[in-house]
Write a protein that binds this DNA or RNA. Structure first.
Lengths: 153, 153
DNA sequence: TGACAATATGCCCAAAATGGCATATGTTTG
DNA sequence: CAAACATATGCCATTTTGGGCATATTGTCA
């Protein structure tokens, strides 16, 4: 049976494969619509974002965002930083692969949904004080109210 | 036919998603080690490759390659062309997104395994005649024999 | 037409990913 | 310390994915 012999070869070939998990993991991190939307915000904004800001911008459950952030983080694209109760994530620019990837994605991600997400984020960022997030989850309605109050000050 | 129903559902489901699908599907196509290895061969070689050449280069079962090719094809990265019994796939350079992606990947995919795969492919390509594949699956041993015969000619 | 070759696909199973919910963890503040 | 808040995670059910195998499909040629 030539076919059996063939399969045997396969198994051997598999064993000594040289890990290329890194790159595969990176693409797995990109292979989900929500995660692409999350990354899009980091790429467009370019700086740290905290979990509640992402949650509000994308209007998804907090645990949902948190889990996806974990996947992206494990791929090496994002790294977290705690500041008190808040956790900020940011692109890991110390990794040249990630830098190249981000540069590429900046031009590659052009969907309208992603623009809309970024606009949503920009609204939410109006509530920052001295460049930092100072409030947790805000409903869409409350956000508008709070922004009005803030701009009157 | 259940198949028709399935296809219908797909089309509907696709419809009410906000575009994005393209990009997510593209990254899903990249999110698997075997598929990255397949794409690597197209990127490095730059021209059409037939299924049996890929199969021999990567030393994986034919159905395995065939299934992965189907995923990559559905993402729009590769397109097939039949030539008699052989089916050649090639990068879809008519799509500018794909062109950009390929350009990026050319620098991004640097793993040793991928170099080894390409070397394996180059060996296999020695059996081509007038730039075309003229033989099906060849075991590693047979490949070496055939190359010897060929170079003596 | 029949045999054969190259490729694709249907079915099954196991593993992994995903979403939803509840709750745990870690931090600040009173 | 307790309470409140931001974030993370464990568990469950469901879906998706990938590998393996057999076989179907498509095309060639005698």
């Amino acid at each position: 049976m030539p076919k059996m012999a063939y399969v045997c070869m396969r198994l051997i070939a598999y064993k000594d494969k040289i890990k290329m998990n890194n790159k595969t993991e990176i693409f797995k991190a990109l292979a989900d619509e929500t995660r692409l939307r999350i990354l899009n915000l980091f790429i467009k904004f370019g700086e740290s974002l905290c979990v509640c800001e992402l949650t509000d911008a994308l209007k998804l459950p907090q645990y949902h965002i948190s889990k996806h952030l974990n996947v992206i983080r494990n791929s090496g694209i994002l790294k977290p930083e705690r500041e008190g109760t808040w956790v900020y994530y940011k692109l890991d620019n110390s990794n040249s692969d990630i830098k190249d990837l981000v540069k590429f994605l900046k031009n590659f991600l052009t969907e309208q949904q992603l623009e809309a997400d970024y606009n949503s984020l920009k609204q939410r960022l109006l509530l920052r004080e001295e460049g930092k997030c100072v409030i947790g989850f805000v409903s869409e309605v409350d956000l508008i109210k709070k922004i009005k109050i803030k701009t009157k000050e």
